[in-house]
Simulated scan of single mutants.
Amino acid sequence: MHQPGRRAAAVSLLALLVSLTGCSSGAGARISGDASSVPHPASSGAGPAPGRPADPARVKIAAIGVDSALLPLGLNEDGTVEVPPAEKGGTAGWYTGSAVPGERGAAVIIGHNDTRFGRAVFHDLRALRAGADIAVRDAAGTTAHFTVTATETVSKKAFPTQKVYGATRTRALRLITCDGTFDAQGHPVDNLIVYAERTGR
């Protein structure tokens, strides 16, 4: 079981961490050589405990044609969340330190918009609208459905860490990808965040 109080306290320590920058613009763009990522409460000790539900295995978003396996994502040495490797841009990843999708808390799934190999799994995420269904199936074959409630484009310099990763009593899901124009190093300057809540129990 997660410990929201400890994780919420840790969130406040991450205000200076950079946000998701692992995406590229595709062909012709300057590509970042690092594995930069999303801010998160590093060293919170609030990861899932033994006895939790089965890990998520697949995400499906029919409205935008996404049907992807889920890679497990951990933390980089600097305390930021990993992103899927560029060569697996067609596959999304679940941050294992967040809630298990469908359980109480905020579950976080991250995917590239584009990589040097072309369009990636969340390329069309900006087309998602409130009311759309997101289905996450776990390794035991159980599917949790979520309804999109809002989308938000934010500057990576002002990533809403508390809003995305902070404690919540709801069974929430957040999808994150890159968005916006590119800086001088070829990094997208924004993040696109999709907020969703579980449908039913």
Rank of each mutant, 00 (worst) to 15 (best):
L125N: 03
D124R: 12
G118I: 02
F117H: 14
P39D: 05
P50F: 14
A99G: 03
N76R: 15
V83Q: 08
G33L: 10
G105F: 11
R6S: 06
A57K: 07
P84A: 15
P72D: 10
L125F: 03
L20M: 08
F122A: 11
S43T: 02
G111R: 04
S12C: 05
P56I: 07
F117S: 10
P56M: 05
V81M: 15
A35Q: 07
V11F: 10
P4S: 14
G93P: 00
D124K: 10
A107P: 02
A15C: 12
S24N: 02
R119E: 13
R58P: 02
A29F: 10
D114W: 08
D78N: 15
L16N: 04
D78M: 13
V121P: 02
P72H: 14
P84Q: 14
P72I: 11
I109H: 00
H123L: 03
G118V: 03
A27F: 09
L73A: 08
A106T: 02
F117D: 09
H40P: 01
T21V: 08
S36R: 15
A9C: 01
D114Y: 08
S12L: 12
G97E: 06
T91Y: 00
V108H: 14
D55Y: 02
D34L: 08
A92L: 11
V81K: 14
A127D: 08
G22W: 01
V66Y: 06
I61N: 05
S43Y: 13
S19V: 01
Q3S: 08
G51S: 13
A92V: 11
A106D: 00
V81F: 10
A106G: 02
S12K: 04
G22H: 02
A106S: 15
A63I: 05
A106R: 05
P4Q: 12
L71D: 03
P4V: 11
R6G: 04
L17K: 13
S43F: 07
G65Q: 01
C23P: 10
G22R: 02
L13W: 10
S32H: 03
N76I: 10
A120T: 06
S98E: 11
G90L: 03
I31W: 15
P84T: 15
E82R: 11
G45I: 11
T80G: 07
G28N: 14
P84V: 15
R126T: 03
S24V: 01
D67W: 14
P39A: 15
G118T: 01
A8K: 12
S44N: 14
R7Y: 05
L13H: 10
G89Q: 12
H2Y: 02
G105E: 03
R7I: 13
P48T: 13
A9Y: 05
R7E: 10
G118S: 01
A57G: 13
A27E: 08
G26M: 02
I61W: 01
A9P: 00
